[in-house]
Structures are given as structure tokens and as C-alpha cells.
């Protein structure tokens, strides 16, 4: 599959933003800590160990949970009316308008370049114990995949199903889920790159790094 990198970069440059809706992860009383339009930052530090700006505190059963920003950007559509009230799980509290950085642009473009193995169902996904062990053993070693390899466990309706890889043989270049994540049907799970395409992908990444200005 050929892509026009120039056009893709142009598209992202014309609108380099992504809106992230911030919803309450569970029930509790909300105490808001930011203002509409305020600039907020995501986690920082070498290991992203310093939390981002405190957005709000969600207090449940006497336990305050500090909800910090996972993104750098600006607060929009703040629900100030929720301040001090008991909310249900999944209640939208605000939006964070985030400007995509270089690495994120690379990630978005890679999705169009790699062969994507999508989630066949809305389910939770795990690597098989054998694959997990192999990845854990040597983190730097690339995992080669070919059709029929049993690679994932799909946990759906309390039943575990082994998933075999279907697609072109290649190197597991990108993993789009965390162990046990719930993924929607069709969401990318794995990004696979054929060995002959690897140099092209590496070159493309290099070009984005040079051309994109954070």
C-alpha cells in the first residue's frame, strides 16, 4: 500500500488538534479545580511520573481521587454546574483540546502504513501466556508473526477464545492495547510490518521527525 506522506502531513498541519472528553471514571462527588480556557499540562518527567495538572477531585466513600490531565492543552466546555455534586459514572466534565506532537503524528500515520490486525469483537484482549513470556524475556527482540500463529486471547461474555493471527507475515511493530483492555469491534490491536517494508517505515518516521515542528 502506497501513501502520500506529503498530503497526510498537510492534513495534520491544517488541524493538529484532538479533543479529549474527560468523563468521571466512577461515581462520587466532584470538586473542580480548573477554569474554562485554562492551559493544562499532561504528565511529565523521564518516565511520565509527574502527574499532569489537577483537573478535579472525585470523592467516593471518603476516598478522594485526584483526576489529573493526561494531555497538554486547553480546558473547554467545562461543566462548572457539577462542582460539589454527586455524579454518576461516565459523566462528561470537560474537554481538553490537545495539540498533537511529533510522536503522536507518527503514531497516527503508522496506522495507515502498517497492516492492522483489528479486534474481531468488542471484548477484552490479552496476549497468550507464551507470547507474553517471549515478549517479557527479550523486550528488544522483534516478534515475527505468520498466519495461524495463536497470539491473543479474546475474553468475551466470560469465555476465553484463542485468536490466531490472520494477515501477512511480518514483524509485530506496534501494540495498540494494554493487557486486558476492552476494545471496540474493529479497533486496532496490532500493527504488523513486513520485513521488506521496514526500511521504508523507518525512513518515513525519520522524515516526519524532521518536517514536523512541535
Amino acid at each position: 500500500m502506497e501513501i502520500n506522506l506529503k498530503d497526510l502531513l498537510k492534513k495534520y498541519k491544517s488541524h493538529p488538534y484532538e479533543d479529549h472528553e474527560i468523563r468521571t471514571p466512577h461515581t462520587g462527588v466532584v470538586h473542580i479545580n480548573v477554569e474554562d480556557g485554562q492551559e493544562v499540562s499532561g504528565p511529565t518527567g523521564r518516565w511520565k511520573h509527574r502527574p499532569g495538572t489537577l483537573l478535579y477531585v472525585l470523592e467516593r466513600e471518603g476516598n478522594p481521587k485526584r483526576i489529573t490531565s493526561r494531555y497538554t492543552g486547553f480546558v473547554a466546555k467545562l461543566r462548572k454546574d457539577l462542582d460539589g455534586s454527586f455524579v454518576q459514572a461516565g459523566e462528561p466534565v470537560m474537554l481538553i483540546r490537545h495539540r498533537l506532537n511529533k510522536e503522536e503524528i507518527i503514531d497516527r500515520i503508522l496506522r495507515e502504513v502498517l497492516y492492522i490486525f483489528p479486534a474481531p469483537q468488542r471484548a477484552r484482549y490479552f496476549f497468550t501466556p507464551e507470547v507474553s513470556a517471549a515478549m517479557e524475556k527479550d523486550k528488544k527482540k522483534a516478534l515475527n508473526l505468520k498466519e495461524g500463529d495463536e497470539i491473543l486471547i479474546m475474553s468475551l461474555m466470560k469465555r476465553d477464545t484463542l485468536l490466531s493471527y490472520e494477515g501477512p507475515a511480518g514483524v509485530l511493530y506496534k501494540v495498540y492495547f494494554n493487557h486486558g483492555d476492552l476494545k471496540e469491534q474493529g479497533a486496532p490491536l496490532l500493527g504488523i510490518c513486513s520485513p521488506e517494508r521496514l526500511p521504508f517505515v523507518e525512513k518515513m518516521i525519520q522524515r516526519i521527525r524532521t518536517e514536523w515542528d512541535d
Binding site: 471514571p25 466512577h26 461515581t27 467516593r60 476516598n63 454527586f86 454518576q88 459514572a89
Partner: peptide, 19 residues
């Protein structure tokens, strides 16, 4: 009817119960 994060989270059940 209260929306909660998970039926298996006891804190959710008790928080709604108290509320």
C-alpha cells in the same frame, strides 16, 4: 437508576447506596 463504572466495584455500590 444510577450509572456506575462496574457491577463488580463495591465502592460504586456503597457510594450509590449512601447517596
Amino acid at each position: 437508576a444510577f450509572k456506575i463504572a462496574n457491577y463488580k466495584d463495591p465502592n460504586e455500590i456503597f457510594a450509590v447506596a449512601d447517596h
